[in-house]
Design a protein around this nucleic acid. Structure first.
Lengths: 358, 358
DNA sequence: CGATGTCATGACATCGGTGTCATAGAACAC
DNA sequence: GTGTTCTATGACACCGATGTCATGACATCG
């Protein structure tokens, strides 16, 4: 492998001049520059990041640790869309001429020390700490010694973090439903006391309040248990209770639940969306776009969160925080409206026309 | 940050001895070893991989390049389960005391040169080249200079690769259906001339042949277009044609398609699985486990492929290839049988009992 | 008892870049 | 014309490990 010395010799200059051509940190004569560049090309020269890191004490690496937190597998495949987080973060980080080093613990908490050791050996300059679902965490002490941004989680010390705007997104979804003529809106929630559950229910209620509609508590039911074993029975019963409250639309805690609700509603003879509208949460395209009819869903904006977190971390590392930058940032996304939600006027019309037909 | 010199001074030995304690490459007196270890702990010493790499000329890094190939987004979210590939590969690579460096192009082909440059600067010792779907590729010349294993793809030069056993998996699925009493098996395929399509159709046919059943060509219809724009109409028509051939079960090219077929069948009044069984492909848990009823599906074993590929690459790098190791390895996985497939005896019984009731 | 071998350790050079400082020549100011 | 600044370049040390070789203290052997 060619070194900077080989290039220097071939171009007839000193190694330091070659270095200057690469880094542009001091003026270099045009002719010299070209000679050096030719030599680099001819020799297929690629600088060694190891040597560079060693001398400059800057690795140019940013570590991302994912799947790190859930030792128990409550939400067994919640981690799947993390790839979008990775993509979002990587795009921003590449632009800053740094490299993202990813450590995925695969949910095995005992592997975290090893992964952190690797990060330290590589002298990562900053860390993105990713949780599988919106929650509070407490950071291992080993992580506190360098810039860090929490993603999808927050801690008691107010460490900088990037979070999904659960309250706002559920508000936007429910507000949109109301504008589409729905006044009795069922809601199958996540298990209680999950951060995302509390926030979204708050958004659900605020949307009702702002529109002057009272919430019928019978319309809000827990649709999932933390342990997913008996999830199905629970959903069946919860749906039963909600249907007694006579909703025109059912909001589900996530797209997976909505997928189940499609099946359950149809078993009971409901046509979707003619006789019952359905909405999800997460906007997992794999589900929402391919369900029939297409599922209306509030997006969980993973790519944007990854990008925002990377951006925040880079600013933290360079010390250029924005004025008034909050330690916790919320990322919003628009609701994806698809065919699973019918506007009530059309709905009423269609029901009427059906009655005529019968 | 503490260096090996600091540790040496604190322990009253030479740096080289500290190095020996870390690497165990020469005998060290027990007492000395303990003194060094204490000093390392006290100083919070973490070796610098940059320095180590530079001196030893071994980076200990393996590069994985994903999302690299599809510049067009035919299968827009096919890349999602790649996280399983990453996990599978990372588990194996960690065990060999190496580190996985991941570059995700996010489907933007123009970013690949940059990513490769990064790999070269970090002196990765081997590369895992991941395609988004089973296909033939031709490798950029820049990649040929170091050990490489193709994952989910293969090339004309017979570069070592790890592939899903599409033929075998579809065979196992269809064979299982036949054993469950289904003799008229509909199949909504992938677009024609895709590698996975041809192989799976071959598996479908072989299963029929081995069981002495003739294939009715009306039962096999293309269910998806390469460009997904008109996918839906196509599926509607394809399903129509298949239903005319009176199947008792419909195999879908993937779980997303199966999800659509659930909706389409129910619109036509079919109960699943009582009046029509359905099977998918991929076994995306997010879909298959949460559809109602649960979807029977042939697994696309991403985690196992990642692990196998990493293993193959490590052997390639160390020169310890197994005797008779084929350049292309197929990875198999069992079919996940769930409620969407009903065994035909039960089916007949149930239909009879219904008739009695009516 | 001298030769040989093994164990435990250290001195020193080296990997490939970059930071610091020095310097030669050209341009500019007074 | 002399002093000052700027441009362009090179010499040299150094970042933190490890490979090579040397060495002293013992143990073993014939």
């Amino acid at each position: 492998m060619a070194t900077i010395y080989d290039v220097a010799k071939a171009a007839g200059v000193s190694p330091k001049t070659v270095s200057r051509v690469m880094n542009g940190d001091a003026p270099v004569n045009q002719a010299t520059r070209e000679a050096v560049q030719q030599a680099m090309a001819a020799l297929n020269y690629v600088p060694s990041s190891a040597a560079r890191t060693m001398r400059s004490q800057r690795s140019g690496l940013i570590g991302m640790i994912t799947g790190a937190i859930s030792s128990t597998h409550h939400f067994e495949d919640a981690g799947l869309p993390e790839i979008y987080l990775v993509q979002g973060a990587q795009r921003v980080i590449d632009q800053s001429n740094r490299t993202l080093l990813i450590a995925d613990s695969g949910g095995q908490a005992e592997r975290i020390p090893t992964l952190l050791q690797t990060f330290q050996e590589h002298r990562v300059e900053g860390i993105l700490y990713v949780a599988e679902y919106h929650r509070e965490v407490s950071l291992p002490a080993a992580l506190r010694d360098r810039p860090i941004v929490l993603v999808n989680c927050f801690d008691a010390e107010d460490t900088p973090s990037v979070l999904p705007d659960d309250e706002g997104a559920q508000y936007a979804l429910v507000d949109g439903l109301i504008r589409r003529g729905h006044h009795r809106i069922g809601y199958l929630t996540l298990p209680e006391h999950y951060v995302a559950c509390d926030l979204r229910v708050a958004g659900y209620r605020r949307a009702h309040r702002d529109n002057g509609i009272a919430v019928d508590d019978g319309l809000v039911q827990v649709g999932a248990l933390p342990s997913s074993t008996h999830e199905f029975d629970l959903l069946w019963d919860a749906l039963d209770r909600i249907l007694k409250a006579e909703p025109t639309v059912i909001c589900c805690a996530n797209d997976k639940m909505a997928m189940r609700v499609y099946g359950l509603l149809r078993e009971r003879g409901f046509a979707i969306p003619q006789q019952m509208s359905v909405a999800g949460y997460d906007d997992y395209r794999m589900i929402a776009e391919h369900l029939h009819p297409g599922l209306t869903s509030a997006e969980l904006p993973y790519a944007a969160m990854g990008a925002r977190a990377a951006d925040k971390l880079l600013r933290l590392m360079s010390g250029t925080t924005k004025p008034n930058e909050p330690s916790r940032e919320l990322v919003s996304a628009p609701v994806a409206w698809r065919e699973s939600v019918q506007t009530r006027d059309a709905n009423v019309t269609q029901l009427n026309s059906r009655r005529k037909e019968t």
